[in-house]
């Protein structure tokens, strides 16, 4: 009998994804599914994926899901969680979704200390629409709508959402993680797990910002993209626990 040391978690359906080669969405999906399996909460997990590359996440996760309008996932999650306070509710949002069109929704969900978790995928670009500038696009980064590189004079500076939300009393646990190697993946998983556990304990709003690559729209090969994430993104978006109000000081 073959023992499987590593296999697909049961909260992740055995189907191919539409994600581009080397895209981190697949890794992050799997980590979430693993944690849900480990916490034995598949039966009462509800996920919300708004518009973005992960809009089809409901085809991949093996639990109840909502599709949502662009940016509105935190409002939808608020409605869901108020109806089912015992469920594990999470939103899965990209940077255009969360930091641009859905900025009001995420800020106020955090301010109200809504008891759900946001998984915020920051890859510094709009993926689904084909590579436009996001609020998190780095200075001088070229995109289809910043073809000469993002210029702070015209487009302002990239937003550090986790730090911004950390100023709100309602956010209790905020971390920025990456999944570009095994060590960081372990840390990322630990943070997402902690956020889910705090939610299940009835604590306030939590968000895990995951830095991710977008090889296709960055115009790089997947391994080049990993290097760019390490050399360009992490210095501007420092990794670590941004806020943990549950730590005993």
């Amino acid at each position: 009998m073959t023992e499987k040391l590593f296999t697909r978690p049961k909260s992740l359906l055995d189907v191919p994804t539409h994600y581009c080669p080397g895209c981190y969405h697949g890794i992050i999906h799997r980590l979430i599914a693993e944690i849900i399996d480990e916490l034995h909460v598949q039966d009462y997990t509800i996920g919300i994926a708004p518009v973005g590359c992960s809009v089809l996440a409901y085809d991949y996760f093996n639990f109840d899901m909502f599709g949502a309008a662009h940016g509105r996932a935190p409002a939808v999650a608020t409605g869901v969680k108020r109806v089912h306070p015992d469920a594990l509710v999470f939103t899965y949002q990209g940077d255009g979704d969360l930091a641009a069109i859905g900025c009001a929704e995420i800020v106020h969900a955090a301010a109200r200390a809504e008891k759900f978790t946001t998984i915020f995928i920051n890859n510094a670009i709009y993926g689904m629409t084909g590579g436009q500038m996001a609020p998190t696009t780095l200075l001088s980064q070229r995109t289809n709508t910043s073809p000469y590189g993002r210029n702070s004079e015209a487009c302002g500076h990239p937003i550090r959402m986790s730090e911004m939300l950390a100023t709100l009393e309602g956010s209790i646990y905020l971390a920025r993680v990456s999944v570009h190697d095994a060590i960081h993946m372990t840390k990322a998983k630990r943070c997402i797990r902690k956020a889910f556990e705090l939610q299940l304990q009835g604590k306030g709003f939590s968000m895990i910002e995951v830095l991710a690559t977008c090889p296709t729209n960055w115009g790089m090969r997947p391994l080049q993209a990993v290097e760019w994430l390490k050399s360009e993104m992490i210095p501007y978006y420092p990794l670590g626990i941004i806020k943990d109000s549950t730590e005993v000081k």
Partner: peptide
Amino acid sequence: IGCLICARTCPDVVIEIHK
């Protein structure tokens, strides 16, 4: 050596590690 790192790195869960 069964370190699982390749499997965990794969975005598409292509790799299983059997024993």
